[in-house]
């Protein structure tokens, strides 16, 4: 008697399973047109992501392989060829010391790109860690850390950066540290909010009942579920941080001469705006192109991971690209 019931229940659910499993990501009562458009849009988002990821990887490759790619020695001075306009021999011209600008720009990518990535990784990791701890523990620790982040938010970044330079000396590492110190609160807040949202979910209770320790809950369950928005934020921040880092170098922090860095290159040649504009415009364009590539990548990542972030109407429109 009992077995008969079991068999019936079994078959019934198997039938249910086939229909539910086969339709993929669509919900019940799926309009096949909507499913198709969803899939098309997803493939488009994926294609975009791949394209821009390749571009960004190319930029990264340039930054890593920079010394090998220079036509000239970026630090070799040749005063007889100083301040030459762009020509076939020097594609971006030369600066006041006769150094080939293009080579300096290529080498400069190391400072700009690699340190920016270091910065973003730092603030994402530290900010997330603090945010998750705050969200998970709550209580006094939460209050203390959030008030601390308030202080860092209110603190003028410039003063902080220049003060760090004053205390520790100039250089890109210190500029990175300074920017990291004032930028982590954003990630902490996001991570904290996301963690709080996850805390109330039953699946964490189920995991606890399955014998998971707190560490397991945080690392195996919470982190994977909050990683998406945090990753998107980090990707979108790369461009901004790159410009901020260049800005600090422009003001005299960060890279110290004769190290080639795009911001400091523009600053040291500022007086040449009238006589030799290429010395300023060339590094500027380098910053622009690099930031643009990473912004495009950030947008593509966002569109791929969380399509609901785009502004769309009637569900059939393009993403918030470009």
């Amino acid at each position: 008697m009992l077995e008969g019931k079991v068999r019936n229940g079994h078959t019934q659910d198997r039938a249910d399973g086939l229909t539910a499993g086969g339709a993929g990501a669509s919900s019940s009562a799926s309009d096949s047109v909507t499913v198709r458009t969803q899939r098309v849009r997803r493939n488009y988002a994926k294609a975009k992501l791949v394209v821009f990821a390749v571009l960004a990887a190319a930029v990264l490759a340039v930054a890593v392989l920079a010394p090998l790619l220079c036509g000239y020695d970026p630090y070799a001075q040749d005063l007889s060829h100083a301040l030459e306009a762009p020509s076939p021999t020097h594609l971006a011209g030369t600066d006041r010391y006769g150094r080939d600008l293009l080579s300096r720009i290529i080498v400069g990518s190391q400072s700009s790109v690699l340190f920016t990535l270091l910065l973003v990784v730092m603030i994402a990791v530290v900010g997330t860690a603090i945010g998750v701890v705050c969200g998970w523990k709550g209580d006094k620790l939460d209050v203390v850390l959030m008030r601390t982040s308030d202080v860092f938010l209110a603190f003028p970044g410039l003063v902080f950066a220049l003060a760090i330079a004053g205390v520790l000396g100039g250089g890109m590492i210190n500029a990175v540290l300074a920017l990291a110190a004032i930028s982590w609160p954003k990630y902490a807040r996001i991570a904290r909010g996301l963690t709080l949202a996850q805390k109330g979910e039953p699946y964490l209770a189920a995991a606890r009942l399955a014998g998971c320790s707190t560490a397991q809950l945080v690392f195996s369950h919470i982190l994977p579920n909050i990683a998406g928005p945090l990753l998107v934020t980090a990707m979108l921040d790369i461009g901004t941080m790159m410009m901020e880092l260049a800005g600090l170098s422009f003001l005299g922090l960060g890279a110290q001469p004769p190290v080639a860095e795009w911001g400091s290159m523009m600053s040291e040649n500022r007086s040449l705006l009238q006589t030799a504009p290429w010395t300023i415009i060339a590094p500027g364009i380098a910053i622009f192109i690099t930031v643009m590539v990473f912004n495009l990548l950030g947008d593509a990542v966002r569109d791929y991971i969380d399509p609901s972030q785009r502004g769309r109407r009637k569900g059939l429109d393009e993403s918030e690209e470009v």
């Binding site: 461009g239 911001g263 930031v291 912004n295």
Partner: peptide
């Protein structure tokens, strides 16, 4: 496109370009 370009230009570059 314009707003994207604007977002990708550092402000000191814009300043110098405008001056130029």
């Amino acid at each position: 496109v314009l707003s994207f370009v604007g977002n990708s230009l550092p402000n000191f570059f814009v300043a110098l370009l405008l001056i130029f």
